[in-house]
């Protein structure tokens, strides 16, 4: 059996007397699209920070691509991609300059990078605006570009933190096609979203409430066990009982 792409066991993080993440345990398989859901403040961001090597856990175990979050956080950072709505691209660089910049950061050879830029621009249909400043692009285009940049270095796992918030419905779906495509190529996708229809696009989803994972299964099984036909219903029933929200 191959190692899981992401592994956690009793992973916990406290801030003073406050337990942000409490004993979460799960595996994400290679090539899986894993939806990480939870109400505002449930602990999703803290958990993601630990998995991306940005924050040390208080206790428990976790590894990403076989690298330990306590001792090998630098190796983790090199082997993952990350994008969020907040930090993604440089507004005052052009579309192709952004790709070039990140290619340089990830140490891609010049020749390969040139080819990669063409390839990305073609796939996400941005060739025509390659010399436009990113600031002038609609949000949905930026997000498609940010996603392509986040997997520029062929990471084994990509973390997407609310990648589609506020994006128009057509572009949102084009975005998800890129996610499917990445997963099809074997990239593991770990994604958070507030759009409950997007939860349905995941192979499995977990729902966090007050720092704990209260449910984890395929969307189909979750709906069956809650006897409902929408993930939104499952989510609302679990999260309604939440004692806390975000800080």
């Amino acid at each position: 059996m191959t190692d899981p792409a992401i592994f956690t066991k009793d992973l916990t993080r406290t801030f003073g007397a406050f337990t942000a993440v409490e004993n979460i345990s799960f595996d994400v398989k290679k090539g899986e699209i894993f939806g990480f859901l939870g109400a505002n403040g449930a602990g999703k961001t803290t958990a993601m920070k630990m998995l991306t090597g940005l924050l040390a856990p208080s206790s428990g175990e976790a590894s990403v691509n076989g690298f330990d979050v306590y001792t090998e956080s630098e190796e983790i950072k090199k082997s993952i991609g990350y994008m969020s709505q907040k930090f993604s691209l440089y507004d005052d660089l052009t579309v192709s300059e952004n790709i070039e910049f990140y290619g340089g950061v990830y140490g891609l050879p010049t020749k390969a990078l040139k080819q990669k830029i063409e390839e990305i621009l073609y796939t996400i249909k941005l060739t025509e605006v390659k010399d436009a400043l990113v600031v002038s692009l609609p949000l949905g285009w930026k997000q498609k570009l940010a996603f392509s940049v986040s997997i520029l270095h062929n990471p084994s796992v990509v973390f997407l933190d609310e990648p589609t918030g506020g994006v128009d419905p057509v572009t949102r779906r084009q975005f998800w096609e890129r996610i499917y495509e990445a997963a099809d190529k074997g990239i593991t996708v770990f994604v958070t979203t507030h759009y409950m229809d997007e939860a349905e696009y995941c192979d499995r989803v977990s729902i966090m409430v007050d720092g704990k994972i209260e449910a984890l299964d395929s969307p189909e099984n979750l709906k069956r066990s809650f006897s409902t036909d929408s993930i939104e219903d499952v989510f609302i029933r679990l999260a309604r009982g939440a004692k806390r929200s975000d800080t």
């Binding site: 109400a39 505002n40 918030g165 506020g166 507030h194 409950m196 999260a239 939440a242 929200s245």
Partner: peptide, 10 residues
């Protein structure tokens, strides 16, 4: 309701 979870939105 932008960026707000499904429960608070409701």
């Amino acid at each position: 309701t932008t960026g707000v979870d499904a429960v608070s939105r409701k």
